[in-house]
Computed example of a mutant assay.
Amino acid sequence: MGAVAAIGERTRVAGFALAGVTVLVAERPQEVLDAWADLPEGTALVIVTPAAARALGPERLAATRPLTAVMP
């Protein structure tokens, strides 16, 4: 099983660290893109906030690797 990461605003993703998720805080669109580019090797699932999803765009979200889930 691969690693899990979360990208987005600190207030929305910080709690995932308690479950062992790699948390990449990104408050602005460019920070989101930089975090995506810096995902640890072997990341299988990325949880993103709605704001991060908008910054990433539909093409990245539609990719099958890594699997991406947008928080409600």
Rank of each mutant, 00 (worst) to 15 (best):
A14E: 15
G2N: 12
M1P: 09
A6K: 03
L39K: 00
D38M: 09
A17G: 15
A52Q: 12
P50L: 07
Q30R: 09
A19E: 09
E9M: 07
W36I: 02
A37Q: 12
D34V: 00
A26Q: 02
L33H: 10
D38W: 00
L18T: 04
L18R: 11
D34E: 09
V46L: 12
L39D: 03
V70M: 12
R54S: 09
V23F: 01
E59G: 06
L39F: 02
G2H: 03
P50W: 09
E9V: 13
A14P: 00
D38N: 12
L45P: 05
L39C: 01
E27I: 07
Q30C: 08
A5M: 01
I47N: 09
E31S: 06
D34M: 05
T64F: 08
L24A: 08
P50I: 10
P58S: 15
G8W: 07
G2I: 00
M1Y: 11
R65H: 13
A35T: 04
G42S: 07
G20I: 01
F16E: 05
R65T: 15
V4S: 07
V23P: 02
P40R: 03
V21T: 07
A37M: 08
W36M: 01
A52I: 11
V21N: 01
T68H: 03
R28Q: 10
P40E: 15
G57D: 03
L45C: 04
G2F: 05
L67M: 10
V21C: 00
A35S: 11
T68S: 10
R28F: 05
V32H: 03
Q30Y: 11
A35H: 05
I47V: 15
L39H: 03
L24F: 02
V70N: 08
A53I: 02
E59F: 09
E27R: 15
A55S: 14
A63S: 14
R65W: 09
L24K: 02
I47D: 04
F16V: 02
M71A: 13
V23A: 03
P66C: 08
A17C: 08
A3D: 12
D38Q: 14
E59R: 15
A69F: 06
T49V: 09
V23N: 00
T22F: 03
V46H: 10
R65I: 04
L45D: 04
V46S: 04
T68G: 08
Q30G: 07
V13R: 10
L33Y: 01
A51Y: 04
A35P: 06
G57H: 04
A62Q: 11
P40M: 08
E31V: 02
A37Y: 00
V46T: 02
R12Y: 13
R28G: 02
R10S: 12
A3G: 12
L61W: 07
E59Y: 09
V46N: 02
D34S: 06
V48L: 14
P29A: 07
R28S: 10
A52R: 08
T49Q: 13
V21I: 11
A44F: 01
F16N: 02
A3Q: 12
V13A: 12
P50C: 10
G15A: 13
E9R: 14
V13H: 12
G15T: 05
G42W: 02
A63T: 12
P72V: 08
V4I: 14
P29G: 09
A69Q: 14
M71S: 13
T68R: 01
P29E: 05
A37T: 10
A62F: 11
A26P: 06
A3S: 13
D34G: 00
P72N: 13
E59K: 15
A62G: 12
T43R: 01
V48N: 05
P40Y: 01
A55H: 09
